[in-house]
C-alpha cells in the first residue's frame, strides 16, 4: 500500500501573539502540491505574521506547521529548502546587481558561486531580465525588481512558493505580468503557490481561497463554495459579507463579555 504524499503546506491550530495582542488564533489550512491558493485578507489580518511563522523567522506559540511533511520547528532546514519566499517589502540589496543578489541567495542555500551564477542567469532569462543581470537593483523598476525576487525565490528549486502581497506598489501592467508569471509556474512547473493579497481582482475562479481576518481563518475552499456560503454574487461581496459577519459576532461577543463583567461588579457591590 503506497503512502499518500504529504501536502505541500499543512498548518494546524497555529496561534501566535505579540505580547498580549493575539496575531493569529487557531489557524488551520492545507495546500496540495501543484495548487494555487489565494490568502485573502485586509491589511493587518495576520498574513505577514503567518508568513513569518511558515518561514520560521520566529516560532509559533501553538500549533504545527509542516512543509511537505517537515515540521518547520523540528526540522527547519528540510522545510526551508522546500520553499521559496517573496516577502511584502523589498528584500533585494539595492547596491548589488540582480545577478549578485541571486548569487548571494544561492550561497545561502549552499550553491558554489559558479553553479549559482549559471542558475541565476537561467532564471533571469526565464523572467525576461537576462539583459538586466548586471544592473544594480537600485536602477530597476518596481516590476523588474519583483521579477528578480521571484527568480531569486526559485533559485534553489523549491516546490512551495510563498508570495506576500507581491504586487503591492506596482502599476496595472506590472501587476498583471507578475500574476501571469506566477500562474505559469503552477501550470507548467507544478509549483504550489500561496499568494497573500488584499486585492480581490487578483483571484481567479479556479483558485482556492482562504480568508483571514483579525488573525482567524473565516473561510477555506473554492471560489464557488465561497459564493454559495455567503449567497453573494461576487467574490468582493462575499468577502465583505464574511468580514462584516465576523466583526458583528466579535462586537456582540465583546458586549456580552462587558455585560457579564458589569453584572459581576454589581453583584460584588451588593455583597459587600
Amino acid at each position: 500500500m503506497s503512502v499518500p504524499a504529504p501536502p505541500a503546506l499543512s498548518i494546524a491550530g497555529v496561534g501566535h501573539a505579540f505580547g498580549d495582542r493575539p496575531a493569529l488564533v487557531d489557524v488551520s489550512l492545507e495546500l496540495a502540491a501543484g495548487s494555487f491558493t489565494a490568502l485573502l485578507g485586509q491589511n493587518g489580518a495576520g498574513k505577514s505574521t503567518l508568513f513569518a511563522l511558515i518561514t520560521r523567522l520566529y516560532d509559533n506559540v501553538s500549533g504545527e506547521i509542516r512543509v511537505f511533511g517537515h515540521d518547520v520547528r523540528r526540522a527547519p532546514s528540510a522545510a526551508l529548502r522546500q520553499m521559496g519566499v517573496v516577502f511584502q517589502s523589498r528584500t533585494l540589496d539595492a547596491d548589488l546587481s540582480a545577478l549578485q543578489n541571486l548569487t548571494y541567495h544561492g550561497a545561502l542555500h549552499g550553491y558554489r558561486s559558479g553553479a549559482a551564477k549559471a542558475r541565476a542567469m537561467d532564471l533571469l532569462r526565464m523572467v525576461g531580465l537576462a539583459h538586466k543581470a548586471h544592473d544594480k537593483v537600485r536602477a530597476l523598476s518596481g516590476g523588474q525588481a519583483r521579477r528578480v525576487e521571484i527568480a531569486r525565490a526559485l533559485l534553489h528549486g523549491p516546490r512551495l512558493l510563498l508570495l506576500d502581497e507581491a504586487t503591492v506598489g506596482l502599476d496595472m501592467e506590472a501587476r498583471e505580468s507578475i500574476i501571469a508569471l506566477v500562474r505559469d509556474l503552477v501550470a507548467r512547473e507544478g509549483l504550489c503557490i500561496l499568494w497573500a493579497t488584499h486585492l480581490i481582482d487578483e483571484i481567479a475562479p479556479t483558485d482556492r481561497i482562504v480568508v483571514l481576518h483579525r488573525g482567524r481563518v473565516l473561510f477555506g475552499g473554492g471560489h464557488n463554495d465561497l459564493l454559495a456560503r455567503t449567497g453573494a454574487a461576487t467574490i468582493r461581496d462575499a468577502f465583505t459579507a464574511l468580514i462584516r459577519a465576523a466583526d458583528a459576532a466579535s462586537a456582540g461577543g465583546k458586549r456580552q463579555q462587558e455585560g457579564r463583567q458589569e453584572e459581576t461588579r454589581q453583584e460584588e457591590e451588593r455583597h459587600g
Binding site: 518561514t55 520560521r56 523567522l57 527547519p76 532546514s77 528540510a78 526551508l80 529548502r81 519566499v85 516577502f87 511584502q88 517589502s89 523589498r90 528584500t91 533585494l92 540589496d93 548571494y104 541567495h105 545561502l108 542555500h109 549552499g110
Partner: peptide, 11 residues
C-alpha cells in the same frame, strides 16, 4: 527594510 529576512530564511 526586510533584507535581513533573506539571511534568516536560509536553511
Amino acid at each position: 527594510t526586510g533584507a535581513m529576512r533573506t539571511l534568516l530564511i536560509s536553511p
